[in-house]
């Protein structure tokens, strides 16, 4: 009989070990794309003399063998060094990421928190009022919210609340402390996740409420509220917890759109500008950075799942 703490530790070790190949895949794929595409970064659009070309190659270590370049790349990454930006000569990629990240993080975390609160509330409400008009409304809302893409929804919200009704600013981030600037972008970013979480938690709550142990709890004379909060909530929330991994990826992808639509100075904007200007190192740096965040978040979610479900990791 292994104790629960031991079981948890072994789960954590297993999950961390599982995350390493994914991280390597991200780094390696990015590196290979950067180095193996025909042409190389300096070929297109720049007319430079062979000497300048050679100097540039040397400056960026492009003249070394591939394996040496790869090892150097890994070593730099391990030190948090994503290299210089190709187009913003005065900044390193690390500096640019550090500048944009707090804004993006705030936007993303707020959207995630909002999505969890509203999504779970809507899903539970739908499950408890199953097949009544209010439940149909929840289902229809979450269907539309899941399917209408961010880049259609965000401008529409701006048009309605920012331009037509003039309730909220239509864009910008203010000085970073003004709530009014954050409401629309956070809602727009959260909306697809609210819908997915509402959909998931509605289904899982309906399933949980049909479990025989819920009848046991009712037979024990426990009130409805306690049955819901203590007995049904655990099974109902587990699918939502598993969804948090994909949700993070979705929020990161969505934030690129939202930052663009609302002119928010986060990583997403740097990323799009860099992609348009073909700033290879910045784009690759952001891909590796965001990839790492997604992997770490998935890891946390896996461990959280193990904490919530005592059957995970049993002998």
């Amino acid at each position: 009989m292994i104790s629960r703490a031991d079981a948890m530790i072994s789960i954590v070790i297993k999950r961390v070990a599982g995350a390493i190949p994914t991280l390597f895949a991200i780094v390696t794929l990015t590196f290979l794309m950067m180095r193996l595409t025909p042409g190389g970064p300096f070929d297109r659009g720049h007319a430079v003399s062979p000497e300048v070309q050679a100097n540039l190659m040397r400056a960026y270590h492009l003249d070394e063998p591939l394996t040496a370049q790869y090892l150097r790349y890994l070593k730099d990454l391990a030190h948090g060094d994503f290299g210089p930006s190709f187009t913003n000569k005065d900044f390193t990629v690390t500096q640019l990421i550090r500048q944009g990240f707090p804004v993006s993080l705030q936007l993303g975390l707020s959207a995630m928190a909002l999505a969890l609160v509203i999504g779970l509330a809507l899903g539970t409400y739908g499950a408890l009022h199953r097949n009544r008009p209010s439940d149909h409304a929840v289902v229809a809302f979450s269907l539309v919210g899941t399917i209408v893409p961010n880049f259609v929804m965000a401008p529409l919200l701006t048009l309605l609340f920012g331009v037509t009704l003039r309730w909220l600013p239509a864009g910008g981030w203010g000085d970073g402390h003004q709530l009014s600037y954050k409401i629309l972008p956070v809602i727009a970013l959260a909306l697809p996740r609210i819908s997915s979480i509402a959909r998931l938690s509605r289904t899982s709550m309906i399933e949980a409420l049909q479990m025989p142990y819920i009848r046991t709890a009712r037979a024990k004379g426990l009130p409805r509220r306690l049955i819901l909060l203590r007995h049904a909530s655990r099974a109902a929330i587990l699918p939502v917890v598993s969804y948090l991994g994909p949700a993070t990826a979705g929020i990161i992808t969505g934030s690129i759109i939202i930052e663009q639509v609302f002119s928010i100075p986060g990583i997403g904007r740097y990323f799009v500008d860099a992609a348009i200007n073909r700033d290879y190192t910045l784009v690759s740096g952001v891909v590796v950075f965001y990839g790492t965040i997604i992997v770490i978040f998935n890891l946390i979610v896996d461990i959280l799942y193990g904490v919530l479900d005592p059957r995970v990791g049993k002998r």
């Binding site: 479990m211 025989p212 142990y213 009848r215 046991t216 709890a217 009712r218 037979a219 024990k220 004379g221 426990l222 203590r230 007995h231 655990r234 099974a235 919530l308 479900d309 005592p310 059957r311």
Partner: peptide, 21 residues
């Protein structure tokens, strides 16, 4: 009354207990 004066024993002890508690 439930759980106090009248109590119920279920058929399948596998599913009658809450696996998460």
């Amino acid at each position: 009354l439930r759980g106090q004066r009248i109590a119920l024993v279920f058929q399948d002890p596998m599913t009658a207990l809450n696996p998460y508690l």
